[in-house]
């Protein structure tokens, strides 16, 4: 195997890890507060991608500058958070917090199925591909290997800023402190006057927006077509489980591990590419059932 192939594998892995992290971190944040594994998170990712690709395509086709793709990504993320995240939490999840985990999983799975159909209704079965944002930033050369700046620089930087921003937000702002407090101990938080219902809503909207942003960022790098949500949610579950449920920094490390493992397999043993993330997860969970960064008793942010 030559060096440039190895570099390509690393770059693929890093850029993919950045995208998976964006989705997984929202998933783990929501789990930390709501104690619900939200299967519909994959749909929110897909819809973020569809919104960006379809509207972006229309904007560019109408002759506007492709640079608009970037603000559009943020708008798509906000739309996913507010128009989908908020009603899902308020109207549905709120009714099942006290119910069994099996029922909670079934309900979010049902939401996932419904949203899959909604996507087909709105966007049909044909793929969308709109990569002007990616082309706009051009390529960079690293040790003789050319790679897109969008994937090699922008995506990892956004993921890193998300990680740092989220940590600062949770640590420094009042809203973030409320989320941290509810994550650690719901009843203790309520007993000092924290409105847990509001914290649930804010957390879910934030997590949903992160999934939407992940999809929006992914859209220039791939064809947006039915099934991408399912693929992403399964990978995110693997990342979150590997990291330890509710672990934010852990999700970043696990995303990198799984992203690199997956792309290494793509080059070395393509037939194993789909399997490798779960093999990594299995290997980690066999040694540490609570995940890389989880603590056996308490699972928290």
């Amino acid at each position: 195997m030559n060096l440039s192939l190895i570099l390509l594998a690393v770059f693929d892995g890093v850029s993919y890890a950045a995208l998976v992290f964006m989705v997984a971190v929202g998933l783990t944040l929501i789990f930390g507060v709501l104690r619900i594994l939200n299967v519909a998170h994959g749909s929110l990712y897909a819809i973020g991608a569809y919104l960006t690709a379809s509207i972006g395509g229309a904007v560019v086709a109408a002759g506007y500058s492709p640079i608009l793709a970037f603000p559009l990504m943020l708008i798509a993320a906000a739309l996913v958070g507010v128009l989908l995240g908020a009603p899902i939490e308020r109207l549905l999840l709120r009714r099942i917090y006290a119910k069994s985990e099996v029922l909670q999983l079934l309900v979010t799975f049902a939401v996932f199925m419904i949203l899959e159909d909604v996507q087909r209704l709105v966007w049909g079965n044909q793929p969308y591909f709109e990569s002007s944002a990616l082309q706009l930033l051009g390529n960079i050369q690293v040790f003789g290997v050319y790679y897109t700046s969008y994937q090699l620089v922008l995506l990892p930087v956004v993921a890193l800023l998300t990680l740092i921003g989220l940590r600062l937000f949770l640590r420094r702002t009042l809203t973030g402190k409320l989320i941290t407090a509810v994550t650690e101990d719901r009843e203790a938080a309520r007993s000092i006057g924290i409105d847990a219902d509001r914290v649930y809503l804010m957390t879910f909207v934030l997590g949903a927006a992160l999934a939407g942003l992940g999809g929006a960022l992914a859209s220039p790098t791939t064809s947006v077509l039915p099934g991408i949500g399912a693929e992403m949610i399964v990978l995110s579950f693997a990342v979150v489980a590997t990291a330890g449920l509710g672990r934010i920094e852990g999700a970043a490390v696990a995303a990198l591990l799984i992203g690199l493992g997956r792309s290494a397999a793509t080059y070395a043993m393509p037939e194993l590419q789909v399997l490798v993330p779960y093999l990594i997860m299995l290997a980690v969970l066999l040694v540490r059932p609570e995940g890389l960064f989880g603590t056996p008793a308490a699972r928290k942010i």
């Binding site: 650690e184 009843e187 203790a188 938080a189 847990a196």
Partner: peptide, 20 residues
């Protein structure tokens, strides 16, 4: 969530502090 604002302080059975 409005009750502590009335001037009620409650120290639950275990310490239940926010460890972070």
């Amino acid at each position: 969530s409005r009750r502590p604002g009335l001037g009620i302080g409650y120290a639950p059975e275990d310490r239940r502090l926010f460890s972070g």
